[in-house]
């Protein structure tokens, strides 16, 4: 898919996510909008995965460590064919496989259960190490939130990945500058993320996380540095694509009312045309 098509698809995914959150009356819409382009680029450009064979040993792995944005992962998996599109409507419903955080036991395409922040990267290190042990070509991608990088477990994993020379591991930090209750800068500031990662021995690339061309290029195997794990610091906006949500902390997990829903849908619809 070309970058322009990917951008249109990402907005369609945003649109479906918005509807699911509105109908369920819960979700983490801000972080879902900010990660939409990253997920779309991974599933429809970069990763080699087969919905018909979700456990293919040679598949690329994705761990959505910021598991609170599960809904948009479900929408993306449905778009890709891992689950039925109609299943998205069961989000958060009693006995649905689609609860508020992804569950690999119930949802094909999910690699590991996330929800508590700071778990995905250590698991990703293990995956990448396994591929190295087998001299296999598959790659591992982990997406974390920027607030999530405050968890110490991430930095333990960052040290291990560098030590193990895991150039088959890519960490994408969704750097929207907001966490749950406030800006990172007013909580525990993590910037400059790139300098910190570089100091830990990683190859780092900073990109506009809403620019499909930059995403596709940064994710491509040609931009990997031999023997070094890669971190993509993706500069994003929480609530991206919806004007009144963009860069506003309260939209971490607020749910739009009917009027806000209509406006948001309109904005996303126009962007997809």
């Amino acid at each position: 898919m070309y970058p322009e098509e990917l951008a249109i698809l990402a907005n369609r995914i945003r649109r479906r996510d918005l509807q699911a959150v509105f109908e369920a009356g819960a979700g983490h819409i801000g972080g879902e909008m900010s990660v939409a382009d990253i997920l779309t680029a991974l599933y429809f450009h970069t990763m080699s995965v087969d919905p018909e064979n979700p456990l293919d040993p040679n598949r690329d792995r994705l761990v959505l460590s910021k598991g609170h944005t599960a809904c948009i992962l479900y929408v993306t998996l449905a778009e890709k064919g891992f689950i039925a599109k109609r299943d998205v409507a069961t989000f958060l419903k009693p006995y649905s496989a689609l609860n508020g955080h992804p569950n690999r036991v119930k949802v094909p395409g999910v690699e590991t259960n996330t929800g508590p922040l700071g778990h995905g990267l250590p698991v990703g290190v293990g995956m990448a190490k396994a591929a190295k042990l087998d001299a296999a070509a598959w790659r591992t991608f982990v997406i974390t939130g920027d607030g999530e990088m405050q968890e110490g477990s991430n930095w333990e994993a960052i040290m291990a990945a560098a030590q193990f020379k895991l150039d088959n591991l890519t960490l994408i930090i969704d750097h929207n500058r907001l966490q749950q209750g406030a800006r990172l800068a007013e909580t525990i500031n993590m910037s400059p993320l790139s300098k910190r990662l570089e100091a830990f021995g990683w190859a780092v690339e900073e990109i506009d996380g809403h620019d499909m061309e930059q995403l596709c290029s940064a994710l491509s195997p040609e931009t990997v540095t031999l023997d070094r794990p890669k971190c993509i610091v993706a500069h994003t906006n929480k609530g991206s694509g919806i004007s009144f949500m963009s860069d506003r902390v309260e939209w971490h997990h607020k749910v739009p009312d009917a009027e806000q829903y209509r406006q948001a849908a309109r904005e996303l619809g126009e962007a997809s045309n």
């Binding site: 369920a24 609170h68 958060l92 609860n99 508020g100 955080h101 259960n113 996330t114 929800g115 508590p116």
Partner: peptide, 9 residues
């Protein structure tokens, strides 16, 4: 209390 957010919560 976090109900639908699931067993992690």
């Amino acid at each position: 209390a976090y109900g639908e957010l699931g067993p992690t919560h």
